[in-house]
Amino acid sequence: MSGAHDTSRAESGRRYTNWIAIARKDFADAARAKMLWALTALLILLVAGVSAIPYLLHSDGPAPEFADAVGFLFQPIGMLVPIIGLIVGYQAIVKERESGSIRFLLGLPFTRLDVVLGKVAGRAGVVALPTVIGFLVGSVVIAALYDGFVVSDYLGLLAFSLIMGLVYVAIAVGVSASVNSRAKAVAGVLGIFVVFDFLWSFVPSVIYWVFEREVPLFTGEPVPAWYLLVERLSPGQALSVIALDLIDFVGSEDVDMTTAGRIAGDVPFYLETWGAWVIVLAWIVVPLVIGYYRFERAIIS
């Protein structure tokens, strides 16, 4: 049949880009939701509002500068962006399974990989757009209030926020692809967040305690290299390491939170900053691979 050849030709041309149709649809769907506007308002409030706090609190001594504002912003971004990413992402696929719209999606010529990739792209866009708007508005406020605006550091903080958003969206979409109910997706993202972002700091301490019968925090001694590696497996920890690559923090040299300052002996290759980039990349890729693997085998009925 001639149609067969036409079809396969049409496919090979589009197969690599078809997820874009899903990303576009998903973003358009979200853009009509109040959530996108709420997020935009929240991020404007965060970047423009929180960065003004050092200026407002300043009473005596030297006036706070741009670097103080950026340093002050870093913490709240690190707390809020992961939560935003998880909330935006966790329903991505499982909601379509619950509502039955997945029957449209999979009745059309999309692979399940298209669905996972399209959803990550669409939801990452839902986090990225308000973030960029928040930083744009924030730049006006920061430039007006502080001296010494460093464009590269500001863009570095924006890039850091976008990467962080992508990591948590990928985790949430991976969970969303893996389960068949929204309740399980909530439990999944919440569980991952609590374990890897709150409890994880105890993991290297516990391992250390098992071997050494003491906790390094109390002894204040330099820690072995493996200790930092385990600590760094947390997405939040790995992200804060790569932040040092992206942003020139005030006083980061003095406090010496850098690897060389914390460990005993030479810095092994896996604790160089690129190692943290690998871990960050893994936190994007691994959840999606697991999600895709499970979604590919899911029975849609």
Binding site: G3, A4, T7, S8, A10, E11, R15, L106, G107, L108, P109, F110, T111
Partner: peptide, 8 residues
């Protein structure tokens, strides 16, 4: 060949 099925 599910993709080709659903394309046609």
């Amino acid at each position: 060949e599910s993709l080709a099925v659903r394309q046609s």
